[in-house]
Amino acid sequence: MADAAITVEGAEKRYGAKKALDGLDLTVARGTVHGVLGPNGAGKTTLVRVLSTLLRPDAGRIRVAGHDVVREAYAVRLRIGLLGQHAALDEELGGRQNLELFGRLHHLGARRARARADELLERFGLAGTGRKAVRQYSGGMRRRLDLAASLITEPEVLFLDEPTTGLDPRGRAEVWNSVRSLVGAGTTVLLTTQYLEEADQLADRISVVDAGRVIADGTADELKAATGGDRIDVVLRDADRLDAAVALLPLTGITVDADRRLLSAPVTDRMEALSAVVRALEQAGIQAEDVALRRPTLDEVFLHLTGDDTRMKEAA
């Protein structure tokens, strides 16, 4: 793809016997937000470290912003910003001192580094922090400063590695708003996350990663559709009747959540399934509290793709 900001072909990285990246392929179009979704240990952080030149891949052809991450690491570094999993700041210095330091290391020169620091502090709502050391910041403030530090030179490509892990809901909303405002400016963003909601909220396209490779790729809607489209949820009044209902209902692939007295199954024809379920329950005298049709959640998509839903069904 000519206008790709990131292309990864057959990336491999092993640590001893463990393959952190196992032939991973990925393409991210310029000016889009791409979500990389996966559980702990799927290889998300390794991927970000390879893309941001921190880690040398064992194999694969990897280009970021038009340059090879191994042979042209310096050219890549000129064009990227990185927000790692842990705040990469000097904890003893203040917010402005940190941004000035990183500005100077980007060779902006003293005056422009200072001006840029002011600008970013203002933009991320940190202008009032004065000389306070980063050590004394709240989690959300620290993350915003960290994000500001990764934007010193308005990078072409920005990597966000689990940007909201460990933040409270308010801190998470702060970071999400900042990311949304960036996208408008034309930056390409690659975002890793364990939170499906985060990928759904922020990303144009999503790659689902498991065991070091991409197992599915598409928009949130495409991924949801791939899991079988709509679902029907039935909540029973009486948990004792769950087994009877499973045996009776004209549905396949039913999952059971006993705590919530909930049955759930994929459907093809929405209206037919709805009336068939209501009829069957009525005839058997099983009382339902709620019957609803809905689109699958990304959680279900994810479990479906990683094969964990079969395990769930067996357990149920």
Partner: peptide, 13 residues
């Protein structure tokens, strides 16, 4: 430990 070395290493310095 703070990860700040990672930021330095990802910069064109």
């Amino acid at each position: 430990d703070k990860g700040v070395i990672d930021r330095f290493r990802s910069m064109p310095m």
